[in-house]
């Protein structure tokens, strides 16, 4: 059913730390590995050994540069389904294959009823839905629904494959609807934000911004100003000079 639940009991989602992501692609490949055998199986590859290799992936990592010159930063930017609260990808679906779960807010595609019309990919601003050219249906992040509730896995493995694989702890999984959850506290502490909030889809996943650089954080007012603000007496200028040297 493509009508959205009025509210979900939980808002399960990811918190992605852009400060610690190093762009190693471990989450990308572990996602592909799990999901090509999981709920979304298969994740097909086109021309795997040919001139134009491409395939269905549910999680991709971009690298961006932000800022210029010495202030420029290289930021690795994982991008997957944000499990929005009001996802247009669900409501546009003509078959009801796309749906948002009332109990945990996860957005899923039913692989048995999807007709591969691709309209949901047009409706998603985040590029989270990918068409599987071989399977003929849409594939998307399931938040590893077949791991997080899977009692045959050990408790520490009941997390999305991407979170489990991240070597730097840049990915966190939890209930963003619960203000007391670890992920909610992390978002509050680090100023986690939404992507493209102006489109109004209310993404559940949050991104943590890169921390300010230490050099930026400790930049002080230029000492020369302190000198010019002094009364100009030799003693004052001497102290100002000492202050400058010591604070350099």
């Amino acid at each position: 059913m493509t009508a959205l639940p009025l509210a979900t009991e939980k808002k399960l989602g990811l918190v992605i730390d852009l400060d610690t992501c190093v762009g190693c692609q471990a989450c990308v490949t572990s996602c592909k590995e799990w999901n090509t055998g999981g709920y979304s199986a298969p994740l097909s590859d086109e021309q795997p050994y040919g001139a134009d290799p491409h395939g269905a992936w549910l999680n991709r990592v971009h690298s961006y540069e932000a800022g210029d010159g010495a202030k420029g930063r290289t930021v690795h930017f994982p991008r997957s389904c944000l499990h929005c609260e009001t996802p247009a990808c669900v409501t546009v679906c003509p078959t009801g294959a796309s749906y948002k779960r009332g109990e945990d807010g996860i957005v899923l595609v039913n692989p048995d009823t999807c007709i591969g019309c691709k309209l949901c990919s047009w409706a998603c601003p985040y590029g989270a839905r990918e068409y599987d050219y071989t399977d003929g249906i849409m594939k998307k992040c399931t938040l590893c629904i077949d791991r997080i509730y899977n009692e045959t896995l050990s408790p520490e493995d009941r997390q999305p494959a991407c979170v489990r694989a991240c070597p730097t702890g840049a990915r966190h999984f939890g209930d963003l609807g619960d203000k007391e959850s670890a992920v909610s506290k992390l978002v509050a502490a680090r100023g986690g934000y939404d992507l493209l909030p102006e489109l109004g889809f209310k993404p559940t996943n949050k991104y943590l911004p890169p921390r300010p650089r230490k050099v930026e954080a400790t930049t002080r007012a230029a000492p020369t100003e302190a000198i010019s603000a002094s009364d100009g007496s030799p003693a004052e200028r001497l102290f100002a000079w000492v202050d400058k040297v010591l604070s350099a």
Binding site: D45, Y49, P53, W57
Partner: peptide, 11 residues
Amino acid sequence: SQNAWLRQITA
């Protein structure tokens, strides 16, 4: 680096 997945990331 000819692995079917990895070469999609960097070819």
